[in-house]
């Protein structure tokens, strides 16, 4: 079953430090070419650890759209 929430990093504000990548228990985050954090929406369980650690506070937890 998919989680109700998932994390999304704001590309423009991300500093690509990798703090979220280290924190993610699902290894669902990678730093795309040193530019920004990319979160695998499917892997993400919406635990919010990345959002809690992000020094730029650029990760938001969003509600998944309910599949019909």
């Amino acid at each position: 079953m998919r989680s109700k929430r998932y994390a999304l990093a704001e590309k423009e504000r991300c500093v690509a430090c990798g703090a979220c990548m280290k924190e993610c228990p699902r290894e669902a985050i990678r730093i795309y070419r040193g530019c920004y954090a990319q979160i695998d929406e499917e892997q993400c369980v919406g635990c919010g650890k990345c959002a809690g650690i992000c020094p730029a506070s650029c990760i938001q937890l969003l509600q998944r759209e309910v599949e019909a």
Partner: peptide, 18 residues
């Protein structure tokens, strides 16, 4: 005062490499 790795958000080396 803030989050542990707040320095990383304005670290000059980080800005330069990004």
């Amino acid at each position: 005062f803030y989050k542990p790795r707040t320095w990383c958000s304005f670290c000059p080396m980080g800005t330069m490499t990004q």
